[in-house]
């Protein structure tokens, strides 16, 4: 079984557990102030809940890996315009470039159009912390949310200037340089300016060239953005890279 398959199975398993856990799924009461979809199960709250209250029904059901949990707001800012700008730009550049570049750009275009996007709420989601520290147990404001809980991810994902997005098995105490060796980079990948979107949403810059001395060990579940080399005369690629990072942070996955 490949890592990809294994992960898919795990996801399915997670989803099934949740569906059985809550029957009211998708049966919404109209006066609910806060709706939180935890993985695939919808919870409605008439009173504004705190984070601990939202987590309470699901927290102990599985061995959730809190550092990789993510919260998104579904009813606010749409990232669709930004996605469209990126897709158009990719299309535009692809239309007048080499076949190799074209493949990469179109693969990325297909990848990004498949993403589910929502505004990421950059807070720590941790049931234990929420129960002991008031600062880590904020109250939800009215709206619709998506909360993703995972068991400890066993992979890192790589997106950007590569022929197709890939997932590599996470290896403890391994620096980014080691992972990159296993990736088939395109010739216009900028490996001196990689961006690592940590599972908590933070973006860290890292480089894996010989002249770069820092060693970054990505966390399980991190998404590594491999940017395109920025040309001397055009900043179009720089805009693509920037959009890609923004969308990656707000990607529901």
């Amino acid at each position: 079984m490949s890592i990809k398959e294994f992960f898919l199975l795990t996801l399915l398993a997670v989803a099934t557990t949740d569906l059985t856990a809550m029957e009211q799924s998708d049966a919404l009461t109209t006066d609910a102030k806060v709706e939180v979809r935890v993985n695939s199960t919808l919870y409605a709250f008439e009173q504004l809940p705190t984070l601990a209250e939202v987590l309470e029904p699901v927290a102990l059901k599985q061995q959730w890996y809190w550092p990789a949990s993510k919260l998104f707001r579904l009813n606010t800012v749409s990232l669709e315009p930004q996605r469209q700008v990126l897709l158009t730009k990719l299309q535009h550049i692809a239309s007048n470039s080499t076949p190799e570049q074209q493949n990469v750009l179109l693969a990325l275009q297909a990848e990004v159009s498949g993403w589910q996007l929502a505004e990421r709420v950059l807070i720590t989601v941790d049931y234990d912390l929420a129960r002991i520290a008031p600062a880590k147990n904020p109250r939800f404001t009215p709206g619709t949310y998506q909360l993703l809980l995972n068991e400890r991810p066993s992979y890192l994902s790589f997106v950007g200037a590569i022929s197709s997005s890939v997932r590599l098995a996470y290896q403890p105490a391994t620096s980014l340089n080691e992972y990159i060796k296993n990736i088939r980079l395109s010739s216009f990948a900028d490996t001196a300016n990689l961006y690592v979107v940590k599972p908590n949403g933070e973006v860290v810059k890292a480089g894996v060239q010989l002249w770069q001395s820092s060693q970054l060990q990505p966390e399980p579940g991190a998404m590594v953005i491999i940017p395109f080399q920025v040309g001397w005369l055009s900043d179009e690629m720089a805009e693509i890279n920037e959009l890609l990072i923004t969308l990656a942070v707000n990607r529901v996955y």
């Binding site: 984070l51 919260l71 709420v121 950059l122 807070i123 008031p134 600062a135 904020p138 109250r139 404001t141």
Partner: peptide, 8 residues
């Protein structure tokens, strides 16, 4: 200060 919002 009473953490009544997600990102105070």
């Amino acid at each position: 200060v009473a953490y009544q919002e997600l990102q105070p």
